[in-house]
Amino acid sequence: DAAEQLTPVLLDGPREESLQLVSELKDSSCSCAVDVSTVWWEAAGCRELRVVTASESAVSLWEPLAPDCWGKVYTWHLREIPVIQIISLPDTCNLVCVALGELEIGEIRLLLYSCETDSFKHSVVKTGNIKAVVGLKDWRLVSSSRTMQEQQVEMVSLSETGGSKDGQTLMPPEETVTAFAEVEGMREALVGTTAGNSVVVWNLKTGQLLRKMHVGYSYPASICHRAYSDSGLLFVVLSHPLAKESESCGSPAFRVVAFNPLTGRSAGVMFSCLPPGHAGRQYLEGDVWDTAGAAVLTSGAVAVWDLLRGWCTAVLPPGPAGHWALARWATGGAGLLAGHRDGTVHLYRY
Protein backbone atom coordinates (compact mmCIF):
# COMPACT_ATOMS: atom_id res chain seq x y z
CA ASP A 1 0.00 0.00 0.00
CA ALA A 2 2.82 2.34 0.82
CA ALA A 3 4.28 1.68 -2.60
CA GLU A 4 1.02 2.57 -4.32
CA GLN A 5 1.07 6.02 -2.72
CA LEU A 6 4.40 7.00 -4.23
CA THR A 7 4.16 9.14 -7.32
CA PRO A 8 6.92 8.78 -9.90
CA VAL A 9 8.42 11.94 -11.33
CA LEU A 10 9.48 12.56 -14.90
CA LEU A 11 12.17 15.22 -15.07
CA ASP A 12 10.83 17.44 -17.85
CA GLY A 13 10.60 14.40 -20.06
CA PRO A 14 13.42 12.06 -20.95
CA ARG A 15 16.56 13.60 -22.37
CA GLU A 16 18.30 11.63 -25.07
CA GLU A 17 21.45 13.74 -24.67
CA SER A 18 22.28 11.96 -21.42
CA LEU A 19 23.39 9.13 -23.72
CA GLN A 20 26.33 9.95 -26.01
CA LEU A 21 27.12 7.61 -28.88
CA VAL A 22 30.75 6.54 -28.57
CA SER A 23 31.11 3.84 -31.18
CA GLU A 24 29.34 1.28 -33.32
CA LEU A 25 30.29 -2.25 -34.15
CA LYS A 26 28.63 -4.35 -36.83
CA ASP A 27 28.88 -8.08 -37.07
CA SER A 28 28.25 -8.56 -40.79
CA SER A 29 28.21 -12.34 -40.40
CA CYS A 30 25.49 -12.23 -37.74
CA SER A 31 22.04 -13.25 -38.91
CA CYS A 32 20.24 -12.79 -35.59
CA ALA A 33 21.87 -11.24 -32.52
CA VAL A 34 20.71 -12.80 -29.24
CA ASP A 35 22.86 -10.97 -26.68
CA VAL A 36 25.71 -8.53 -26.10
CA SER A 37 27.97 -8.00 -23.11
CA THR A 38 31.41 -6.84 -22.03
CA VAL A 39 34.30 -8.72 -20.47
CA TRP A 40 37.67 -7.78 -19.02
CA TRP A 41 40.44 -9.32 -21.09
CA GLU A 42 44.16 -9.38 -20.37
CA ALA A 43 46.63 -9.96 -23.18
CA ALA A 44 50.33 -9.11 -23.37
CA GLY A 45 50.17 -7.49 -19.93
CA CYS A 46 47.38 -5.14 -20.98
CA ARG A 47 43.93 -5.38 -19.39
CA GLU A 48 41.08 -3.90 -21.41
CA LEU A 49 37.33 -4.02 -21.69
CA ARG A 50 36.16 -6.03 -24.67
CA VAL A 51 32.72 -6.48 -26.19
CA VAL A 52 31.13 -9.91 -26.58
CA THR A 53 28.36 -10.48 -29.12
CA ALA A 54 26.29 -13.62 -29.44
CA SER A 55 24.18 -15.02 -32.24
CA GLU A 56 22.43 -18.39 -32.06
CA SER A 57 25.47 -20.26 -33.37
CA ALA A 58 28.48 -18.10 -32.56
CA VAL A 59 29.96 -15.92 -29.82
CA SER A 60 32.47 -13.25 -30.86
CA LEU A 61 35.05 -11.29 -28.89
CA TRP A 62 35.78 -7.69 -30.00
CA GLU A 63 38.76 -5.54 -29.00
CA PRO A 64 39.02 -1.74 -29.18
CA LEU A 65 41.28 -0.76 -32.09
CA ALA A 66 40.71 2.99 -31.77
CA PRO A 67 38.37 5.13 -29.64
CA ASP A 68 35.50 4.58 -32.04
CA CYS A 69 36.49 1.35 -33.77
CA TRP A 70 36.22 -2.32 -32.79
CA GLY A 71 37.79 -5.40 -34.40
CA LYS A 72 36.76 -9.02 -34.00
CA VAL A 73 39.45 -11.03 -32.18
CA TYR A 74 37.94 -14.48 -32.12
CA THR A 75 34.68 -16.37 -32.70
CA TRP A 76 33.62 -19.49 -30.85
CA HIS A 77 31.28 -21.55 -33.04
CA LEU A 78 28.55 -23.38 -31.11
CA ARG A 79 26.44 -25.10 -33.72
CA GLU A 80 24.89 -27.99 -31.77
CA ILE A 81 22.62 -26.04 -29.40
CA PRO A 82 21.49 -22.41 -29.91
CA VAL A 83 23.02 -19.72 -27.71
CA ILE A 84 20.34 -18.06 -25.55
CA GLN A 85 22.25 -15.52 -23.45
CA ILE A 86 25.62 -14.33 -22.19
CA ILE A 87 25.98 -14.70 -18.40
CA SER A 88 27.98 -11.92 -16.74
CA LEU A 89 30.71 -12.99 -14.31
CA PRO A 90 31.48 -9.88 -12.24
CA ASP A 91 35.19 -10.07 -11.47
CA THR A 92 36.61 -12.57 -13.93
CA CYS A 93 39.09 -11.94 -16.70
CA ASN A 94 39.57 -13.76 -20.03
CA LEU A 95 36.37 -15.71 -19.49
CA VAL A 96 32.96 -15.64 -21.18
CA CYS A 97 30.01 -17.65 -19.88
CA VAL A 98 27.06 -18.50 -22.11
CA ALA A 99 23.73 -20.30 -21.75
CA LEU A 100 22.60 -22.59 -24.54
CA GLY A 101 19.27 -24.27 -25.16
CA GLU A 102 16.03 -24.31 -27.06
CA LEU A 103 13.10 -22.80 -25.13
CA GLU A 104 14.98 -22.91 -21.83
CA ILE A 105 18.63 -23.28 -20.85
CA GLY A 106 19.95 -26.81 -21.29
CA GLU A 107 23.65 -26.16 -20.92
CA ILE A 108 26.06 -23.57 -19.53
CA ARG A 109 29.47 -23.25 -21.15
CA LEU A 110 32.62 -21.33 -20.41
CA LEU A 111 34.48 -19.81 -23.36
CA LEU A 112 38.08 -18.95 -22.61
CA TYR A 113 41.63 -18.53 -23.78
CA SER A 114 44.18 -21.05 -22.59
CA CYS A 115 47.70 -19.66 -22.15
CA GLU A 116 49.10 -23.17 -21.83
CA THR A 117 47.98 -24.23 -25.27
CA ASP A 118 47.80 -20.72 -26.74
CA SER A 119 44.30 -21.45 -27.97
CA PHE A 120 40.67 -20.52 -27.44
CA LYS A 121 38.46 -23.29 -26.13
CA HIS A 122 35.11 -23.98 -24.47
CA SER A 123 33.90 -26.36 -21.79
CA VAL A 124 30.58 -27.44 -20.27
CA VAL A 125 30.06 -26.56 -16.58
CA LYS A 126 26.38 -27.41 -16.12
CA THR A 127 23.58 -29.27 -17.91
CA GLY A 128 19.89 -29.79 -17.11
CA ASN A 129 16.57 -27.99 -17.41
CA ILE A 130 17.97 -24.73 -16.09
CA LYS A 131 15.44 -22.05 -15.14
CA ALA A 132 17.70 -19.30 -13.85
CA VAL A 133 21.43 -18.60 -13.57
CA VAL A 134 23.63 -15.82 -12.21
CA GLY A 135 27.36 -15.20 -12.05
CA LEU A 136 28.64 -14.04 -8.64
CA LYS A 137 31.87 -12.46 -7.48
CA ASP A 138 34.82 -14.76 -6.76
CA TRP A 139 34.24 -16.96 -9.81
CA ARG A 140 30.97 -18.48 -8.58
CA LEU A 141 27.91 -19.51 -10.57
CA VAL A 142 24.45 -20.26 -9.12
CA SER A 143 21.73 -21.97 -11.09
CA SER A 144 18.29 -23.47 -10.51
CA SER A 145 17.17 -26.47 -12.49
CA ARG A 146 14.08 -28.67 -12.46
CA THR A 147 13.42 -32.34 -12.86
CA MET A 148 9.90 -33.77 -12.92
CA GLN A 149 10.01 -34.28 -9.16
CA GLU A 150 12.10 -31.51 -7.69
CA GLN A 151 14.01 -28.29 -8.08
CA GLN A 152 17.76 -28.11 -7.54
CA VAL A 153 19.58 -24.91 -6.66
CA GLU A 154 23.33 -25.20 -6.81
CA MET A 155 26.40 -23.00 -6.58
CA VAL A 156 29.64 -24.03 -8.28
CA SER A 157 33.07 -22.40 -8.16
CA LEU A 158 34.68 -21.95 -11.55
CA SER A 159 38.32 -22.65 -12.25
CA GLU A 160 40.54 -20.55 -14.47
CA THR A 161 41.01 -23.54 -16.77
CA GLY A 162 37.30 -23.69 -17.55
CA GLY A 163 36.12 -26.37 -15.15
CA SER A 164 34.07 -26.32 -11.98
CA LYS A 165 35.53 -26.96 -8.53
CA ASP A 166 33.62 -26.98 -5.24
CA GLY A 167 29.86 -27.07 -5.15
CA GLN A 168 27.19 -26.15 -2.62
CA THR A 169 23.58 -27.25 -2.80
CA LEU A 170 21.10 -24.60 -1.72
CA MET A 171 17.76 -25.48 -0.18
CA PRO A 172 15.14 -24.93 -2.92
CA PRO A 173 11.91 -23.03 -2.28
CA GLU A 174 8.67 -24.77 -3.25
CA GLU A 175 8.19 -22.42 -6.21
CA THR A 176 10.41 -22.27 -9.28
CA VAL A 177 13.20 -19.72 -8.99
CA THR A 178 13.08 -17.26 -11.89
CA ALA A 179 16.11 -15.03 -11.19
CA PHE A 180 18.97 -14.49 -8.75
CA ALA A 181 20.89 -11.44 -7.50
CA GLU A 182 23.85 -11.37 -5.13
CA VAL A 183 23.51 -9.11 -2.10
CA GLU A 184 26.22 -6.51 -2.64
CA GLY A 185 28.84 -6.41 0.08
CA MET A 186 27.59 -9.66 1.65
CA ARG A 187 29.58 -12.48 0.08
CA GLU A 188 27.43 -15.26 1.51
CA ALA A 189 23.98 -13.73 0.88
CA LEU A 190 21.93 -14.36 -2.25
CA VAL A 191 18.38 -13.38 -3.16
CA GLY A 192 16.07 -14.83 -5.76
CA THR A 193 12.60 -14.23 -7.16
CA THR A 194 10.13 -17.08 -7.63
CA ALA A 195 7.30 -17.92 -10.00
CA GLY A 196 4.96 -17.39 -7.05
CA ASN A 197 6.14 -13.77 -6.86
CA SER A 198 8.21 -14.03 -3.70
CA VAL A 199 11.72 -12.88 -2.86
CA VAL A 200 13.80 -15.57 -1.14
CA VAL A 201 17.10 -15.22 0.69
CA TRP A 202 19.83 -17.86 0.99
CA ASN A 203 23.00 -18.33 3.00
CA LEU A 204 25.47 -19.44 0.32
CA LYS A 205 27.93 -20.86 2.83
CA THR A 206 25.46 -23.20 4.56
CA GLY A 207 22.88 -23.55 1.77
CA GLN A 208 20.10 -22.48 4.17
CA LEU A 209 16.94 -20.89 2.82
CA LEU A 210 16.63 -18.03 5.28
CA ARG A 211 13.45 -16.23 4.34
CA LYS A 212 10.62 -16.09 1.81
CA MET A 213 8.88 -12.72 1.42
CA HIS A 214 5.92 -12.03 -0.86
CA VAL A 215 6.23 -9.21 -3.38
CA GLY A 216 2.48 -8.65 -3.84
CA TYR A 217 -0.09 -9.65 -6.40
CA SER A 218 0.01 -6.32 -8.26
CA TYR A 219 3.35 -7.20 -9.79
CA PRO A 220 3.32 -10.71 -11.25
CA ALA A 221 6.46 -12.31 -12.69
CA SER A 222 8.82 -9.95 -10.85
CA ILE A 223 12.51 -10.41 -11.66
CA CYS A 224 15.28 -9.44 -9.22
CA HIS A 225 18.25 -7.56 -10.68
CA ARG A 226 20.16 -6.16 -7.73
CA ALA A 227 20.13 -6.36 -3.93
CA TYR A 228 21.93 -4.58 -1.11
CA SER A 229 21.55 -4.33 2.65
CA ASP A 230 21.42 -0.98 4.42
CA SER A 231 20.40 -0.08 7.99
CA GLY A 232 18.97 -3.52 8.63
CA LEU A 233 16.78 -3.53 5.52
CA LEU A 234 17.24 -5.52 2.33
CA PHE A 235 16.73 -3.37 -0.77
CA VAL A 236 15.87 -5.28 -3.93
CA VAL A 237 15.62 -3.84 -7.44
CA LEU A 238 12.83 -5.67 -9.24
CA SER A 239 11.60 -5.41 -12.79
CA HIS A 240 8.02 -6.05 -13.73
CA PRO A 241 7.66 -7.12 -17.36
CA LEU A 242 3.97 -7.93 -16.87
CA ALA A 243 2.85 -5.32 -14.34
CA LYS A 244 -0.54 -3.75 -14.98
CA GLU A 245 -0.83 -0.07 -15.74
CA SER A 246 -2.48 1.85 -12.92
CA GLU A 247 -3.65 5.44 -12.58
CA SER A 248 -1.41 6.12 -9.62
CA CYS A 249 1.89 4.90 -10.99
CA GLY A 250 1.52 4.28 -14.73
CA SER A 251 3.39 1.24 -15.96
CA PRO A 252 6.18 0.36 -13.53
CA ALA A 253 9.12 -1.19 -15.37
CA PHE A 254 11.35 -1.24 -12.27
CA ARG A 255 10.74 -0.87 -8.55
CA VAL A 256 13.07 -0.57 -5.60
CA VAL A 257 11.51 -2.40 -2.66
CA ALA A 258 12.73 -2.42 0.95
CA PHE A 259 12.23 -5.70 2.82
CA ASN A 260 12.67 -6.27 6.52
CA PRO A 261 14.20 -9.77 6.44
CA LEU A 262 13.30 -10.36 10.09
CA THR A 263 9.55 -9.85 9.63
CA GLY A 264 9.13 -10.34 5.88
CA ARG A 265 7.30 -7.01 5.61
CA SER A 266 8.08 -4.71 2.69
CA ALA A 267 7.51 -1.20 1.37
CA GLY A 268 7.97 0.27 -2.08
CA VAL A 269 10.77 2.84 -2.18
CA MET A 270 10.50 4.05 -5.77
CA PHE A 271 8.78 3.30 -9.06
CA SER A 272 10.39 3.74 -12.46
CA CYS A 273 7.64 3.86 -15.06
CA LEU A 274 7.47 3.67 -18.82
CA PRO A 275 7.91 7.14 -20.35
CA PRO A 276 4.87 8.95 -21.83
CA GLY A 277 3.99 7.65 -25.26
CA HIS A 278 5.42 4.23 -24.52
CA ALA A 279 2.89 3.09 -21.91
CA GLY A 280 0.40 0.33 -22.41
CA ARG A 281 2.36 -2.72 -23.43
CA GLN A 282 5.28 -3.61 -21.24
CA TYR A 283 8.96 -4.00 -21.91
CA LEU A 284 10.81 -6.92 -23.43
CA GLU A 285 13.94 -7.13 -21.34
CA GLY A 286 15.93 -5.03 -18.92
CA ASP A 287 19.27 -4.63 -17.20
CA VAL A 288 20.42 -2.83 -14.06
CA TRP A 289 23.76 -1.33 -13.13
CA ASP A 290 24.10 0.45 -9.78
CA THR A 291 21.22 2.93 -9.75
CA ALA A 292 20.65 2.88 -13.52
CA GLY A 293 18.07 0.70 -15.25
CA ALA A 294 17.69 0.15 -18.99
CA ALA A 295 15.02 -1.70 -20.92
CA VAL A 296 13.92 -2.42 -24.45
CA LEU A 297 10.28 -1.41 -24.79
CA THR A 298 7.76 -3.08 -27.06
CA SER A 299 7.70 0.18 -29.04
CA GLY A 300 11.24 -0.66 -30.18
CA ALA A 301 12.82 2.12 -28.08
CA VAL A 302 15.36 1.76 -25.27
CA ALA A 303 14.56 3.66 -22.07
CA VAL A 304 16.99 4.47 -19.26
CA TRP A 305 16.02 5.34 -15.66
CA ASP A 306 17.58 6.68 -12.51
CA LEU A 307 16.04 4.00 -10.29
CA LEU A 308 16.43 5.83 -6.97
CA ARG A 309 14.67 8.95 -8.26
CA GLY A 310 12.20 7.16 -10.53
CA TRP A 311 13.20 9.41 -13.42
CA CYS A 312 13.35 8.28 -17.02
CA THR A 313 16.60 9.98 -18.04
CA ALA A 314 16.92 8.93 -21.67
CA VAL A 315 15.03 7.31 -24.52
CA LEU A 316 16.66 5.92 -27.64
CA PRO A 317 13.93 5.80 -30.28
CA PRO A 318 14.01 3.03 -32.89
CA GLY A 319 16.44 4.16 -35.59
CA PRO A 320 16.79 3.58 -39.33
CA ALA A 321 18.05 0.08 -38.54
CA GLY A 322 14.73 -0.71 -36.89
CA HIS A 323 13.70 -1.62 -33.37
CA TRP A 324 16.24 -2.02 -30.62
CA ALA A 325 16.39 -5.60 -29.38
CA LEU A 326 19.06 -5.56 -26.65
CA ALA A 327 20.08 -3.17 -23.86
CA ARG A 328 22.95 -4.06 -21.51
CA TRP A 329 25.13 -2.07 -19.14
CA ALA A 330 28.85 -2.50 -19.74
CA THR A 331 30.93 -3.96 -16.89
CA GLY A 332 31.84 -1.35 -14.32
CA GLY A 333 29.20 1.04 -15.59
CA ALA A 334 31.42 1.88 -18.57
CA GLY A 335 28.40 2.65 -20.73
CA LEU A 336 25.29 1.25 -22.31
CA LEU A 337 25.29 -1.30 -25.12
CA ALA A 338 22.22 -1.19 -27.35
CA GLY A 339 21.83 -3.77 -30.07
CA HIS A 340 19.71 -4.52 -33.11
CA ARG A 341 18.81 -8.03 -34.24
CA ASP A 342 20.98 -7.56 -37.37
CA GLY A 343 24.12 -7.57 -35.22
CA THR A 344 24.65 -3.80 -35.01
CA VAL A 345 25.69 -2.67 -31.51
CA HIS A 346 25.94 0.96 -30.37
CA LEU A 347 28.06 1.79 -27.33
CA TYR A 348 26.85 4.86 -25.42
CA ARG A 349 28.46 6.85 -22.64
CA TYR A 350 25.91 7.55 -19.86
Binding site: E188, Q208, T263, A267
Partner: peptide, 23 residues
Protein backbone atom coordinates in the same frame (compact mmCIF):
# COMPACT_ATOMS: atom_id res chain seq x y z
CA UNK B 1 17.44 -3.73 17.25
CA UNK B 2 15.00 -0.89 16.52
CA UNK B 3 11.33 -0.55 15.61
CA UNK B 4 10.12 0.66 12.19
CA UNK B 5 6.90 0.49 10.15
CA UNK B 6 8.23 -2.80 8.87
CA UNK B 7 8.67 -4.21 12.36
CA UNK B 8 11.81 -4.58 14.45
CA UNK B 9 14.97 -4.43 12.37
CA UNK B 10 18.50 -5.60 13.02
CA UNK B 11 21.80 -4.80 11.34
CA UNK B 12 22.71 -8.47 11.92
CA UNK B 13 19.61 -9.88 10.23
CA UNK B 14 21.67 -12.28 8.12
CA UNK B 15 23.42 -13.85 11.10
CA UNK B 16 20.20 -13.96 13.13
CA UNK B 17 18.23 -15.67 10.37
CA UNK B 18 21.11 -18.09 9.74
CA UNK B 19 21.09 -19.05 13.43
CA UNK B 20 17.31 -19.67 13.35
CA UNK B 21 16.84 -21.35 9.96
CA UNK B 22 16.93 -25.13 9.63
CA UNK B 23 20.35 -26.39 8.54
Amino acid sequence: CSETDLGPISLNWFEELSAEAPP
